[in-house]
Nucleic acid binder design. Sequence first.
DNA 1: ATGGCTGTGAATCACAGA
Length: 264
Amino acid sequence: MKIVTWNVNSLKVRLPQVINWLVAHQPDILCLQETKLQDEFFPATEIAALGYHSVYTGQKMFNGVALLSKQNGADVVTAIPNLDDSQKRIIAATYEDVRVVCVYVPNGESIVSDKYQYKLMWLDALNRWLSKELEQYPRLALLGDFNIAPEDRDVHAPDLWRGQVLCSESERNAFQELLKLGFADSFRLFDQPDKSYTWWDYRMLAFRRNRGLRIDHIMLSSELASICKSCMIDKEPRKLERPSDHTPVIVEIAQDLEQARSCN
DNA sequence: ATGGCTGTGAATCACAGA
């Protein structure tokens, strides 16, 4: 099973790229963030023409998340239960016995902003919800744009970013608290190239200079981590005309331990 | 060096992103 996360920064603008990517890579599930589309404008017909189901929750201008999948998902949820939040940042569904939770974590703006407090509150609510979800779904994948660079090695210039939003101690602690629930950061289950990032600023030739951050993640419950075959960042879409500022991140998961071992 | 780039919606500019 191939599962992917990609913050597309407007699905309206990026739809041709998403379609090309789907056709070329044939993921089982593609999680999208920042669709920036109200539900009535979601391009479900175009995506269905490729053989993909869509579930989505969006709003005008901001946020918006979606799950595109070869199989129809069950038990779709579009909000963190018991969290009063008008922003569309979460969608979850079950595919066979795998629960997939797609998140667009708040950016936070800066550590002195009200939006930073909202981010920390939101992450705490996510943690509390997922601690219960893990009991119900031992095979759980949590993926999306976390807007957190978990370690200095995930930052092109750690000293410049130290203490700043996306890298601050409280945000990194929140990330660690998710790991403590039993999740693994799938990217770090494998050897990876140095200076691997998933986001580069549009300005200052940041991509060409590889001045990026690794803020898009795929977290796997221990049961899924044990059968994870690979995790990689696909930088190719970032090289296209009018790219998203984020790249896709891809995991491959075996059906069972035996298959996982035979592939390693 | 608090700029710079992109997308949205409105109305030639403000806001958000990270």
